[in-house]
Design a protein around this nucleic acid. Structure first.
Lengths: 178, 178
DNA sequence: TAACTCATGTAAGTGGTTACATGATTTG
DNA sequence: CAAATCATGTAACCACTTACATGAGTTA
């Protein structure tokens, strides 16, 4: 059996909604999934080959320029369901901007404050980008979009929380005795 | 030059505060840094070797059972500062529980709701664990602890936000037309 | 003295990134 | 017909995980 792996299941999930070529899938990953699970082109094609060998997807159509359209198989749907419902999601999310915060005592208070203010600013602009996506999409179009909207809402709330935290943290460094 | 890498700089940052052996560092990673940047034992020892070869850390003491105590060098401090202040933190955090949300339209509404309710429950218990750490630590003890407290606060606020989101999302699937 | 903890390492495998390579088809 | 886009792949390298291996010192 193929090991657990989110990229793999991301591909299965997309194909379960929309049969696509590797090229199409890359655009999905760069669009909706970009902030949740980025993937490179080389990764996708390699993974599609392995999924086909394992019988979880199959080529159902071909087009110009060697285009191959994949669709999920019954075995693929079974595996996808298993991953969705039986597999425990990874709780730890690596976070290198937060890792830096642990070490801000090693730079001057002014530098630490600037780091946190910048963090607030970056979160704010990230929030704005997400808000634009939220405003410019027809979320009722299909099932995929409806659940994508829930995921997006998570991003909106997280970034908002992060802005507030970073502003608070920057303020803390100001009043900090040393 | 050694490439950018958070694990490497995590080690430098810890050693800048507390000269330690690999074994000590593993305990730091399993303690304070566990939720932000986990690392395995094999990774640490390998990386310590590379950092020593690069002259960013050095052995300043030895003890029983082949114990080697490392300290950061001046070059190491320079590199750490560069990473802290000049290097752009990675904005994208991979999130496999959120990736699953995109595909919840592929299971029954009841199953989707259960997934989101479980997500709320897991976030709640994670929040409780963090709260316990917050309550049982002397955060004014030293500089490292003061900034660690800021990082912890980020975790507290994020998990709280996530609980609220997951409860809201679960509610959405209830009222969803299909 | 047995069990436990401290302490350091190696090896094999996987997931992910960057760079390179190639060519067919469409568009201006 | 040149440039852009569609389309698929390979190769090398790096970060990380899992498993294995070994032995010294401490504690019950």
């Amino acid at each position: 059996m193929l090991p657990d792996m989110s990229l793999r299941h991301g591909l299965l999930g997309l194909l379960a909604h929309f049969p696509s070529s590797g090229y199409d899938l890359k655009r999905w990953f760069d669009g909706s999934l970009a902030f949740v699970w980025p993937a490179t082109q080389s990764q996708l094609y390699g993974e599609l080959g392995r999924l086909e060998d394992a019988g979880l997807i199959e080529v159902t159509d071909t087009g110009p320029r060697r285009r191959k359209v994949y669709d999920i198989t019954e075995d693929g749907r079974t595996e996808l369901r298993r991953w969705l419902l039986d597999e425990e999601p990874e709780r730890v999310k690596r976070n290198d901007s937060l890792l830096r915060v642990f070490f801000l005592g090693l730079v001057t208070p002014a530098e630490a404050r600037r780091y946190l203010e910048r963090e607030a600013e970056l979160s704010r602009s990230h929030h704005e980008r997400l808000q634009q996506v939220a405003d410019s999409t027809d979320w009722d179009k299909n099932d995929f979009n409806r659940f994508a909207r829930l995921a997006l809402e998570s991003g909106l709330r997280s970034t908002e929380t992060n802005v507030g935290w970073a502003e608070w943290a920057a303020e803390q460094t100001r009043s900090r005795r040393r």
